[in-house]
Design a protein around this nucleic acid. Sequence first.
RNA 1: GGCCCGGUAGCUCAGCUGGAUAGAGCACCAGCCUUCUAAGCUGGGGGUCAUUGGUUCGAAUCCAAUCCGGGUCACCA
Length: 599
Amino acid sequence: MTLTSQIKHAAQDAFKHLYPDVSIDIATILVNQTKPEFTGDYTIVLFPFLKLLKQKPDVIGKQLGDFLTEKTELFAAYDIVSGFLNLTVRDNYWVSFLLNNYADAHYGEKSKTDRRVMVEYSSPNTNKPLHFGHLRNIFLGAAMSEILRATGNQVVKANLINDRGIHICKSMIAWMRYANGATPEQAGVKGDHLVGDYYVKFNDVYKEEIKQLVAAGTEEKAAEKEAPIMKDAQDLLRKWEAGDKEVYGLWQKMNGWVYEGFDDTYKTLGITFDKVYHESDTYLLGKKIVEEGLAKGVLFKKEDGSVWIDLKEDGLDEKLLLRGDGTSVYMTQDLGTAKLKYEEFKLDQSVYVIADEQNYHLQVLKLIMKRLGEPCADGIYHLSYGMVELPTGRMKSREGTVVDADDMAGEMVRLAREQTESAGKTEGFNADELTKLYETIALGALKFYLLRVDPKKKMIFDPKESIDLHGYTATFIQYAHARICSILRKENVPMAPGASRFQSFEQATDLAPLEKSIILTLEQYSSVLSESADEFNPSSICNYAFQLAQLFNTFYDAHSISKAESEEKKELRLIIIVMTASVLRHAMRLMGIALPEKM
RNA sequence: GGCCCGGUAGCUCAGCUGGAUAGAGCACCAGCCUUCUAAGCUGGGGGUCAUUGGUUCGAAUCCAAUCCGGGUCACCA
């Protein structure tokens, strides 16, 4: 049980003894960390009890404070300041907390349950390489998966690859026309980039053709439909759906290039999946669900044969589920995939990491499943995040106005090298170690940059400003960790000492304020972790880890560890920094960020 | 226009289940390396928490209205 909930229960208990006739709901007991300008560790706010107990705050505070200090083992002292009861927790609570948990590499986690959760993220189209916006999606999904795993869930990390449709055909037709059979090897370009180049090429040609048609007197809208390259692309899609061998072969070949490129990028980023779905496999599944819905009378058919659902009762509109010609739309596929996932993995929850522009789509998806009586409906959760924009506006692959993910990763490595070299910190590393270090710093900075912000907020990234390696960054946390490791090396204490290492420690002197602050912060980690899982928000963990690192740096500056005032203090501080490093590693591992032992 | 999300320091963001004098980072200014890694630490300036009204002992936080920015409401995905 966390300390704050222990305090709440203790206070509730105290009220039961002091005021047997009044019942106090535990939810009305508000326990906050005491502000630094007052003495105390945790504060109980007394105002909510005034009316219930018909007493003045000072009286209630004194009764509660006396009871808590005398009848429980938790508190050493209390202080009442204008309606706030500030409680000082006994040093021996902090010390035994530390001794009980420092050796636990899983400290903060919840015990495993049978709850099964799938997190779907990345979900790329195969007509272009990944860009900076996709990175937010990928890092969020990966981090959320780890957070959910650490809070007791069985997690399946899934990637749904959108490998079919008109957008792929656009790249294909441009490649057929202009590439002269070029392969990634011949062109010396990553496969996803090569295909992406032809996607951009398609749009250039398409625009040019429209321009010409308009110049020849065609209306703009008609020209958009009649442009030869667009007609060719549509023709390609029809052939693909009909199973044309040649088209299918090209599609496989080009997708293969893209997958190789993606795999490369995922590998660089340290991203993995447990399950990969392809829309080319799943896109027909939804049709069956639609037919069943028709039979049940939940859906209806219009004269042209198209199938719809009426969502007016829920304040929404009519929504198309199947075209008149029987082909499926985006929603149809998603219905099928949702059911497939649910049945394949017996999911309690299915998390979709998708940008907020699709809020409506996901709302409708869930609602339709509910109306159809599909059991998967309740578990659908949309982890909606704001888009990453450039100062000039949204990133658009087809216009080439994107910050490419591979470029960005490379740029970050360059930056990490530059700053390490100029700080003169390359000593004691060989070339391989340095390469590894630069990658660790670069990737950490990138992930932290995208994860430290509340997912629902949109971000603007200015490529002209490089991502910082100072201040509120992963580098800061990595640096604090490296400093701890350096001390531990000198003192011959392993990074993860066993529970027996400090068995004989006995506290002889009072805790210094900074010693206590760190332990208090360490104690809060499990709450932060659960909150982050409940809110689907990794940024609170970033925030926490930064605070802890910052606190350590202050502590480091104020108190020597190796040359502590006494052996007892030295032991205590060693335990504190061991656990600090361990919690930092744990928190950052959830974010997919590694902490070097030396930097 | 309907619905959804956002608006807090010059910039980027915490804080939002109501609680004490609203916090970080960047940038700016002033200090701190014969002592465990200065990618660090200490201090300083900088705020009408978009606006107005309401609820309350108490509002950045809750409610209502308004303003600003974005998204979405496709037989695109």
